[in-house]
Design a protein around this nucleic acid. Structure first.
Lengths: 357, 357
DNA sequence: CTGTTAGCGCTTTCAG
DNA sequence: CTGAAAGCGCTAACAG
């Protein structure tokens, strides 16, 4: 017999449904129905069962046993590729998580799992019925393979396309073309970009072709490719993360040049980075948009922008989460769902203007 | 026999460990050891088992079955009293969540559960081994009772004291006394406060004794009581949530008075609220701290404060999470842990100054 | 409306 | 080092 089947050592043995049934003088199945409510039962019998439960201090059916028996746990795994803190500092990520949680409602919880992309991860041993990847990279191929074998429905938000993983995508490429075109139409020709990280290394570096070739983050690449459709030779700096501090540091590098060589516009891949770039410009005595045009991406409403209204592409971040949550629910119900593609909207603010003569 | 024990309808039947064992020509227990690694097994046998698994496309032991058998799932439930979005917008909450996740490491995931405080919640049916409450109110009494019956270790971060729930507390009261004393020492006598919500209603209202009596949020009360130790008659506005928008709206109400009646200082219960109050002052043409002293609470580093450096109590937010994560780990290991009490540190910035003559 | 029966898939003694 | 047996606690047929 098992010596210790308690959640932690030192616990006293808990009564089981069978104990309750015995005490109430009914069968196990009847007792089960008294708790679950599906199946018919007379009010009197149910009350008797519940009373017996009360007397024994029975806490209700054990979720673990129930989940084995039913084959479902009600848990949706949400796989983040980064430390929780970084993910949580990204407003788009938060909005998406909220969207997921709205859609799942009270019918289940979100199990947050992080993946460092290395070795055996909890992803392979954790209890959940479906998975949502947020910005997943090729590192996860092994985990995805395992979930596929387990028939766990998977949805990826803005990730690499994987076979068998439903995709909730954003028009990163097209939106970036639109935005770059706006900059181009304003006459800017010396333009630089600040991109999101290209891989899991997370350090600030000049943007090189080599880095691009070894990149693992789809969103970054898509946005870059879009901008390069308008500015084929576009170069700049890869940020270590999406924050104003990084944006500022990166922009300081880009703006450290003689006026006639300095970029007249910066295309930042996120609004946080863009705000940092504006700060950098201010600190150098440059005016936005007079001396420097700055555009972002996301449509995050950032505190403390004062009179700046960022020119950016507004992405439906919460909608991404809702779509993923909905898809997962449908897949779990055995219904089929198609890939989702979401569209960003151009917002012209006051941080972009014609190139100075 | 059970008709459908798949995570979702339409799934094909998965091989089980027993199938793998049979194919490898070993017993179930041996196959189990091949995967779990505990127990001794010859390399040759293990390879044979793994090969058989490969051939059958076996994904590894089913987490649900394993969790029933072992009595543990590796999941820690994190119970938020609010919508995920609201929780995630609170920088202190995010820091605490990150602290938890750091401490848990890869050994398990965080299952985020929200409670509206009503009826049967997922909390009672979800699979997890231990629970961490973040800012829990009396609403959760029933769920707590059930977890107690299940012998689920519980830790509350800044919540009401519940029997059997380990407490990770902050010195909200004492810290508030300190801060109020600073304001008092600067000579301020007409002082108002902007508090965090007092209950789950979440609407902006004047602070009344009646509201205080029916309050359910411990943190808010503690901070208020601390301030009232210095300003016994302190009154003001209850914010609907902790955000700069709310802080601004609340402050506009407080500052809408003739100069000789208007408060000369505002004690905000969070930094976000304080920043909002500063914005309100600016919008009314009042200078901070010349015309109005504003103090906050938290030590959140808020973007866009420009030259303001908020006078506040800096709380160890990430540490709260780490302490809770550590406690939970210890409790699950059967070791005993005591309550934790954390201390905030006064930070004098430039938003507080002597009362105008 | 209630009881009987048969496992869910796994791990863990305990013998060999 | 390996195998046999015994459940973890519950729920879903199915029969009465």
């Amino acid at each position: 017999m098992s010596a210790n089947n308690q959640p932690h050592p030192g616990a006293t043995p808990r009564p089981t449904l069978a104990d309750v049934a015995k005490r109430a003088g009914v069968s196990g199945s009847t007792a089960s129905i008294a708790f679950s409510g599906d199946g018919s039962i007379s009010a009197k019998t149910r009350d008797r069962v519940l009373a017996a439960a009360e007397e024994l201090n029975y806490a209700g059916p054990d979720p673990r046993a129930r989940s084995l028996r039913q084959g479902r746990s009600g848990i949706v795994g949400v796989i983040l590729e980064d430390r929780v803190l970084h993910s949580f500092r990204d407003p788009m990520m938060i909005a998406a998580l909220d969207g997921i949680s709205q859609q799942l409602g009270d019918s289940g919880g979100m199990l947050l799992l992080t993946s460092n992309g290395e070795g055996e991860s909890t992803i392979q041993t954790a209890v959940f019925d479906a998975a949502i990847f947020m910005g997943c990279s090729p590192h996860l191929a092994r985990s995805i393979e395992i979930m596929r074998q387990r028939n766990v429905p998977m949805v990826a938000i803005e990730g690499q396309a994987f076979a068998g993983v439903l995709s909730v995508a954003l028009d990163n490429r097209e939106a970036s073309v639109t935005l770059a075109q706006v900059v181009h139409d304003l006459g800017h020709r010396r333009v630089a970009t600040i991109t999101l990280p290209l891989d899991s290394l997370r350090e600030r570096r000049p943007l090189t072709d080599e880095l691009v070739r070894s990149a693992t983050t789809a969103t970054t690449l898509d946005r870059l490719e879009g901008a390069r459709e308008v500015y084929p030779a576009l170069t700049g700096v890869v940020a270590a993360n999406s924050s104003t501090d990084e944006g500022m540091a990166a922009a300081l590098v880009l703006l450290d040049a003689a006026p006639e060589l300095r970029p007249t516009a910066i295309i930042a891949q996120s609004d946080l980075l863009a705000v940092g770039a504006i700060r950098a410009a201010e600190s150098l005595g440059l005016r936005v948009p007079g001396d420097l045009t700055v555009v972002g991406f996301d449509g995050a409403r950032i505190e403390g922008m004062n009179d700046y209204d960022l020119t950016t592409m507004v992405q439906p971040a919460m909608e991404k989460g809702r779509a993923a949550g909905f898809a997962v629910t449908e897949l779990l119900a055995g219904r089929s769902v198609g890939d989702v593609s979401l569209t960003s909207v151009l917002h012209i603010g006051n941080t972009s203007g014609p190139v100075a003569q």
